[in-house]
Simulated assay, not measured.
Amino acid sequence: MSTVGHPLRHENFQKAVGDLFWSGKDSDLTITCGPYIYKVHRFIICLQWHHLGVAISACFNKPGQWVLDLPNDHPPTIHRVLQYLYTQDYDDDGFEAEWVNPKEGMVYGPDRASERFQRCPIAIQVPQNNIQVYLTAEKYGIPSLMSLAAEKLGHWARVYRRSVAFIDILEDVLTLELGAKSELRGVLVDTSIDCIVELIERKKFLELTTQFPDFGSEVLATLVKTKLREQENKIREQGIKLREQENRLRKERRGRRGQKNKLHEQGNKLREQGLKPHEQRSSRREQMKGRRGRN
């Protein structure tokens, strides 16, 4: 059996499963959360939402009462969780998303001057939606959804890092005290470090580093590590350049030795050529002496 699938078939399958979420066709379970009612399918929900497996099984032990109520959860967030279970994605805007007011929708100008702003129509509810999805996925043990929510928040943070809203969202996440290993906290810390040159000039950001010492220490430690890494890279590059120079010098020395050897060989040849006439003269003298002796 071939292990290579056709992309179009996969897309069609995902669309078909996604349509089940919106249509509720052939549903065998109802999940309620506040005013929202969802007609869902056990085989899709239980395969991914293991935390609810026991509760759902308990529902089916009572004939005719195939309804699971989630009274303590945020209804729009449960909508996004269910949407993810069917489509492996969710909409973080459009569903109870609110646009920011003019003040929150301002970003600092290119010159980083705090008195100069530029209008920026961002939805402050978008990052908050992703935060709620992350917390709910953590509560119910859906790690893949946690990663997706953190990824979406990270994308928002990189795009709107210069907005006033970024500092507000950063403060909200730090207030949650999720821990240093939290993906959600990590994406905002990484964005803060990447944009530290811009953020360090903002009073509110500096206040956060003092208000949350762990965050301030992490930013400082990462900056120090980054600087050390940059210095190590520079030293490594300088070492490579020095080795290249040494190799060039060795080649030049070898070339000079080769030239000296050639000159030495040429000198030997010239000396040999210079001795031949002398040897000829010596042999002639000996011949002449021999003739005189015979006479």
Rank of each mutant, 00 (worst) to 15 (best):
T77P: 06
G18S: 13
E232Q: 14
E246Y: 11
Q231M: 14
L85C: 06
L223N: 12
N233M: 11
R292M: 14
S23Y: 09
Y38L: 08
F21G: 02
D91H: 07
R271H: 11
G255M: 12
E286I: 12
P76I: 09
P277V: 15
P143W: 06
T209Q: 08
P35Q: 12
V133G: 08
E237T: 15
K152T: 09
E232W: 08
V224H: 05
P102T: 04
R9N: 02
W66M: 01
Q273S: 08
G105T: 00
N295S: 13
Q287D: 05
D168Q: 07
P7E: 08
Y84R: 05
D26L: 13
D194P: 00
G141N: 10
E230S: 13
R281A: 13
L178Q: 06
V54P: 01
D19Y: 05
T32E: 03
E98G: 04
E272F: 03
P110M: 06
A113E: 08
E286D: 14
N129F: 03
S2E: 13
H41K: 07
P121S: 15
R112Q: 13
P63E: 05
K234Y: 11
N268A: 02
D73V: 09
R254C: 04
A150L: 03
L8A: 13
K139V: 07
L174D: 04
I240V: 15
F13Q: 01
N129G: 02
N261Y: 10
R291D: 10
W49G: 01
P213G: 06
F43N: 12
R202P: 01
S282F: 05
H10A: 15
I235G: 03
R250S: 11
L249M: 07
D69V: 06
E230W: 06
I167W: 00
S144H: 07
G216Y: 06
T222Y: 01
G293H: 13
S57D: 11
R202Q: 13
K25L: 04
N101K: 06
F95I: 14
T87M: 09
P76N: 12
H6M: 07
P63I: 03
H278M: 08
V54D: 03
K103P: 00
E272G: 12
T30M: 09
K62Q: 11
D190G: 07
K204A: 11
F21Q: 04
N295Y: 14
L223S: 14
L70Y: 00
K227P: 03
N247C: 10
D89W: 10
I122N: 03
W156E: 02
R285G: 04
F60N: 04
Q245W: 06
P143V: 09
K15M: 10
L170M: 15
L220Y: 12
Y84S: 02
D28G: 03
S144Q: 10
